[in-house]
Amino acid sequence: MLRRYSIQLILIACGGLLTYVAYEELLSLYTLSVLMFMGVNIILSSSLNLVNGNMGEFSCGHAGFMCVGAYVSSVLGVWLFTKDKVFGVPLLDPEWAIYAFPFIILVGGVAAAFAGLLVAIPSYKTRGDYLAIITIAANYIVISAIENLGVIGGSRGFMGMKQVISAMEDVVYLPWMPIWVFVFTIFCVWAIRRYVSSTFGKGVNAICQDEVAAEIMSVNTNKIKTVTFMVSSGLAGIGGGLFAYIIGYVNPGSFNILKSTEVMVMVYLGGMASLSGSVLSAILFTLLLEALRPLQIIKWIVVPLLLIIVMQFRPEGIMGNRELSDIFPWLKRFYRFK
């Protein structure tokens, strides 16, 4: 019994510890924010892995969907719960923010999922490098569309999300951001794992390995592609929403191709189609970036160089296409990874 629920218990313990530590301010604000970015990066890399790893497509525009989620949830939160120059008085009592916050993030995710259709529909007819272009174009389209939306700040960016968080803290004083980042990270990984381990979701792997055989063997490839792209971009939207509320400020420039590249690097570093690899590499990559922060601009020479070296010696990424349980079989006693 204990064994069966051990993972759940560990997670609850971790969440409790994180809340306690953040509440008592035992960790510096910096450490806490690194931990939160780690969570966001886990969401981003594992959701992109669904498309690039499991489905074998080559999406290079993940940050575009993140951007949609970030803006939708930011604008929604600010519009509903804060006094803002543009939107005027709050539409709802700011006290409600505490209940509405997860839904605001989810709405951002749903909006991003629909933005994912921008890529999903062309993917019916085309794949590979042509689809890669479509994702790049989609990323640029999202960014330049927001740059041209003067109402929400255009290229100057949009802010006011900190007020939503403080409205939540006014009702019950808890470290809300770490809590929600933790909850959503667990939710995303959990949802992806359930999706890819179901027979329904294994259709995704079938498409990757032989699309023709999949279609003829009764897999509705268009439907699976649509669902997968929507799930992937929707989770990216959730990650984007959290990212926006952590920083308290968004601007389109932070969701450019460079950001997409960063996420892509995490996926390939972890190993394609390996969920635990994505999680692991997101953690490592976040730590690496933070550790090299003192190098300033040199950081962006050292990091790519390290990656190139990793690719030379371990071209399949950290985990290959295996899960943690394939490397450490004793883990299977606690948890089924596949």
């Binding site: 027979t199 329904f200 294994k202 259709g203 792997n205 079938a206 390995q209 032989d210 023709v212 055989a213 999949a214 063997m217 009764s218 897999v219 509705n220 296409n321």
Partner: peptide, 18 residues
């Protein structure tokens, strides 16, 4: 045209997708 990186059991399972 089997799905080569899926277990034999999964190959049979996915074919029941319809």
């Amino acid at each position: 045209r089997l799905w080569n990186d899926m277990s034999v059991l999964d190959n049979i399972r996915v074919a029941q997708h319809g």
